Amino acid sequence: MNPFTFNTTKSILCRPGAAAELDRHAGALLGPRVLVVTDPGLRKLGLTDPAIAALRGAGHEVTIFDAVEADPSVATLMATLEAGHAAEATGILGFGGGSSLDVAKVAALLLGSDQPLDEAWGVGNARGPRLPLVLVPTTAGTGSEVTPVAILTVGGEEKRGVSTPLILPDIALLDAELTLGLPASITAATGVDAMVHAIEAYASANANNNPLSRMLAREALRLLGANIETAMRDGSDVAAREAMLLGSMLAGQAFANSPVAAVHALAYPVGGIFHIPHGLSNALVLASVLRFNLPIAAETYAEIAADAFPQLADHPLDTRAEAFLRELQALSGRLQMPQRLRDVGIPEDALPRMAADAMKQQRLLVNNPRPVTEADALAIYTEAW
Rank of each mutant, 00 (worst) to 15 (best):
34 V>K: 06
201 A>Q: 08
9 T>P: 04
57 G>I: 07
26 A>S: 12
100 S>A: 13
258 S>F: 09
77 L>S: 09
244 M>C: 07
161 G>T: 00
310 P>A: 03
200 E>T: 11
235 G>T: 02
325 L>P: 12
237 D>W: 01
19 A>S: 14
159 K>R: 11
69 E>A: 12
207 A>H: 13
356 A>H: 15
70 A>W: 01
51 A>M: 05
381 Y>N: 05
127 R>I: 14
160 R>C: 08
80 T>V: 12
161 G>F: 00
45 L>W: 05
202 Y>D: 09
108 A>V: 04
289 V>P: 08
28 A>V: 15
18 A>H: 04
341 L>N: 06
383 E>I: 10
133 L>T: 13
310 P>M: 04
213 S>Y: 03
183 P>H: 07
372 V>W: 05
209 N>V: 14
42 L>A: 02
26 A>G: 08
177 E>M: 05
108 A>M: 07
337 M>P: 03
178 L>W: 01
127 R>S: 15
186 I>L: 15
265 A>Y: 12
372 V>M: 06
223 L>N: 06
38 T>S: 13
383 E>Y: 05
300 T>S: 13
295 P>M: 10
213 S>K: 00
64 I>Y: 09
79 A>H: 15
268 Y>V: 10
261 A>E: 14
51 A>Q: 05
272 G>H: 09
212 L>S: 12
370 R>P: 08
164 T>P: 01
325 L>N: 14
115 Q>L: 02
78 M>K: 13
311 Q>W: 06
20 A>N: 15
43 R>Y: 03
5 T>I: 08
95 F>R: 06
231 A>D: 04
357 D>Q: 14
173 L>M: 14
266 L>D: 09
66 D>K: 03
208 N>M: 06
261 A>M: 14
69 E>Y: 07
154 V>S: 10
52 I>G: 03
350 A>Q: 07
338 P>S: 07
278 H>P: 10
348 E>T: 12
351 L>H: 02
279 G>C: 09
324 F>T: 09
129 P>W: 06
156 G>A: 02
370 R>S: 11
376 D>C: 03
340 R>Y: 12
28 A>D: 15
94 G>D: 04
47 L>P: 02
329 Q>V: 15
302 A>E: 02
142 T>R: 03
300 T>W: 07
38 T>Q: 03
100 S>P: 05
72 P>C: 06
317 L>E: 12
326 R>E: 15
344 V>M: 11
172 A>L: 06
186 I>P: 09
172 A>K: 01
181 G>F: 05
50 P>C: 12
365 L>Y: 01
288 S>Y: 13
53 A>N: 11
262 A>K: 09
371 P>F: 09
6 F>E: 06
41 G>Q: 10
49 D>I: 03
130 R>K: 11
121 W>L: 00
86 A>Q: 15
13 L>G: 01
18 A>K: 01
98 G>Y: 02
108 A>F: 05
350 A>G: 09
59 G>K: 00
292 F>Y: 15
108 A>L: 08
384 A>T: 03
27 G>Y: 10
276 I>S: 07
88 E>I: 00
355 A>V: 14
237 D>E: 08
42 L>C: 07
